[in-house]
């Protein structure tokens, strides 16, 4: 897990993007960019060599789950580690995300520790893969 890895933070609420950005910075990850919707995020991912995607689910244009599916369907992006950070916690949603290939699922409200732990887990598995 490289502290310089390029991370894209996607959420339609600027406050949440800011919180996640700050938490990531505290964990040593300062190379972050932001998008306010799945729709704006996808082209950024396609042209940007990002190493990690953190996204919300509920967004007006393209939802996080659709963004995830688009990423997995794109040849260049299919292996991109994706972490969903969302208020959605219905079982069907969690299962759908897992089946769509999400690497981690965090429910809001969350703590800095949880974020750190999940990121660690994701890259542990990615490293082992």
């Amino acid at each position: 897990m490289n502290k310089d890895m390029k991370i894209l933070i996607v959420d339609d609420f600027s406050t949440m993007r800011r919180i996640i950005k700050n938490l990531l910075r505290d964990l040593g990850f300062s190379n972050t960019q932001e998008a306010d919707d799945g729709q704006t995020a996808l082209p950024m991912l396609q042209s940007g060599d990002f190493d990690f995607l953190v996204t919300d689910w509920n967004m007006p244009g393209m939802t996080g789950i659709d963004l995830l599916k688009a990423v997995r369907a794109d040849e260049k992006l299919s292996a991109l580690p994706v972490l969903l950070v969302t208020a959605e916690q219905k079982r069907e949603q969690i299962v759908e995300a897992a089946q769509a290939g999400v690497n981690g699922y965090i429910v809001k409200p969350f703590t800095a520790e949880v974020l750190k732990e999940k990121i660690g887990k994701i890259f542990e598995r990615v490293g082992a893969a």
Binding site: E88, K90, R91, Q93, I94, A98, Y105, V107
Partner: peptide
């Protein structure tokens, strides 16, 4: 198909929602 619920609100918890990160982890 299950419409999005948004954040769980005390008193309005859905039966099909889990409660908290631990339950999410367990389910996964």
């Amino acid at each position: 198909k299950a419409s999005l619920d948004g954040p769980q609100v005390p008193g309005l918890e859905s039966n099909s929602a889990v409660s908290g990160q631990d339950e999410v982890d367990d389910l996964l």
